[in-house]
């Protein structure tokens, strides 16, 4: 067991846990924008900064990202010192200037007293704050259809060469995991379009309601060695089928 303190509270940890996990478990809120439990931390948004020190550091301390810093014995962690708060505010200023319309950014900024950005606003700025959640989610759990391309200010999330991806299965995990709803997509009953590719959402073989995209069904079938067709029944019809087979058995 590793023992440390966070904001004066004693916490214990098993090996390998990050400060953010421990703080949240202890009920201490640390804001994050690039953190997602489903993927490895990236340390991109810099909002979760906390100040750490040790008695033997003689008053010296440093800022680290809580989402990435592993628990260490005897560490003294402070989550809301003036240094931490100033850094956080300045990061939010930058994010707000970058993506002034992103709801998640506006909400957090307002919490820190920032209603209007003090820096030049990027009028063309979209909602993407490059938190890297979408690309990590897709790369880790789905097919790795998107990645961050270019460097510096030109960095963006895209499919290779901005072309319709041949591995994207249209599951929408990226768009739904995005904290700022920055990923464009459109869907109606029968189709879904994302990353420049239009998918057929296969209609339920019983009632015709939309189920999953053919690509996602194939990908799932391949992973688990089951028949693709199994996925083309909607949940309502599956319930009805379950009910019917029950009745058949019973009566």
């Amino acid at each position: 067991m590793i023992r440390l303190t966070i904001d004066g509270r004693r916490v214990e940890s098993r090996n390998g846990e990050y400060l953010l996990t421990l703080a949240r478990r202890a009920g201490i809120e640390i804001p994050t924008l690039c953190h997602h439990e489903a993927v490895e931390p990236a340390g991109a948004c810099r909002l979760c900064m906390v100040e750490i020190t040790r008695p033997q550091w003689n008053g010296w301390s440093k800022l680290v990202t809580a989402c990435l810093y592993p628990a260490e014995e005897g560490l003294i962690v402070k989550t809301s010192t003036e240094r931490v708060l100033r850094t956080r505010r300045e990061v939010l200023e930058l994010l707000l200037a970058r993506s002034p319309r992103a709801e998640a950014v506006r909400r957090l900024a307002a919490q820190y007293g920032i209603l209007e950005p003090k820096y030049a606003v990027d009028q063309e700025g979209d909602n993407c704050i490059l938190c890297d959640i979408c690309t990590r989610v897709c790369a880790t759990h789905v097919t790795g259809a998107i990645s961050r391309v270019n460097r510096g200010v030109a960095k963006k999330v895209a499919t290779p060469f901005d072309e319709a991806s041949d591995v994207c299965v249209g599951c929408m995990a990226c768009a739904r995991s995005c904290p700022t709803d920055a990923i464009a997509f459109s869907q109606d009953g029968a189709t879904r379009a994302i990353w420049g590719k239009t998918f057929e959402v296969v209609p339920c073989t019983v009632c015709g309601a939309p189920t999953v995209t053919r690509e996602q069904a194939r990908w799932m079938a391949q992973r688990k060695g089951v028949a693709e067709e199994d996925f083309y029944v909607c949940d309502v019809c599956k319930v009805a089928k379950t009910g019917l087979s029950c009745r058949k058995v019973m009566w």
Binding site: A44, R46, L94, A97, D132, R148, R151, G152, V153
Partner: peptide
């Protein structure tokens, strides 16, 4: 540095731009 920042983290990417 704006040209060379990798663009991963907010302070460097957006801070240098500002």
């Amino acid at each position: 540095l704006v040209e060379e920042s990798c663009g991963k983290c907010v302070p460097c990417r957006d801070g240098l731009k500002q």
